[in-house]
């Protein structure tokens, strides 16, 4: 709800017949998500290009079994993280449903659950990063793993890609917290469902990006 469309209302103007009839902020957020999709596409593509080269390089040296970068990335922890993030999408949906039916205690519970799950994901990623770093994976084109020097951009592309995703999750958590407090303070505001819907939209997007990264990096 923008300040100026409010200006139209107050001046007693006719409704915006010619316009789309969608909330402006929602429209803007959809466009933003379109833009973000290309942002992550470029990051993921970069990762895949260099990953394919590393793989070919190591296979040629007969070190693939021993050196496949996937071995660094314990699949267990990341599967749990993926599950956490997917669960947070579910709690987000439940929180939105609760705002629409104006069940505020329920809403607060589900939104808090989303915040907790989102934070858990971020903390899990921090743990994963430190763990990988100590195992030898560095933000550098060359690192030592189990006594052998690996020349690969795997660490570089991996940390930058997942790091930027983590940054987006973190900003999402901050946004969720802001919405939580706003709704708690102004429970009567008719803007609330849209506020929750917007942060939910962003949250689902960030979640989807993780699904893509998880599939392309950890599973394939």
């Amino acid at each position: 709800m923008s300040a100026t469309s409010h200006a139209h209302d107050e001046a007693g103007q006719a409704p915006l017949v010619g316009s789309l009839g969608v909330d402006s902020r929602k429209l803007g957020l959809w466009a933003f998500i379109g833009s973000e999709t290309l942002f992550f596409t470029a990051l993921i593509t970069t990762h895949l290009i260099f990953y394919a080269r590393t793989k070919a390089d190591l296979a040629a040296k007969g070190m693939l079994e021993h050196m496949d970068p996937k071995l660094y990335l314990g699949i267990d922890l990341t599967t749990i993280l993926a599950a956490i993030l997917l669960a947070s999408s579910l709690t987000m949906v439940l929180a939105l449903a609760a705002t629409k039916s104006k069940e505020w205690p329920k809403f607060r519970f589900w939104l808090l659950a989303t915040i907790v799950l989102g934070s858990a994901f971020v903390l899990g990623q921090v743990y994963e990063f430190t763990h990988l770093y100590h195992e030898g994976l560095k933000l550098a084109p060359q690192y030592v793993y189990e006594g052998e020097t690996v020349k690969s951009l795997f660490g570089v592309t991996f940390f930058v890609m997942t790091g930027f995703h983590g940054l987006h999750v973190t900003l999402g958590v901050v946004w969720l917290i802001a919405v939580y407090f706003k709704v708690r303070r102004f429970a009567a505001s008719p803007e609330n469902p849209m506020d929750v819907e917007l942060v939910g939209l962003y949250w689902h997007f960030v979640d989807l990006v993780w699904v893509a990264i998880f599939t392309l990096v950890y599973l394939i």
Binding site: S5, L16, G18
Partner: peptide, 16 residues
Amino acid sequence: ALNFIVTVLNMRAPGM
């Protein structure tokens, strides 16, 4: 650009 997109799509006068 986001601002322009929303403005043009959503803020047009009636009938435009």
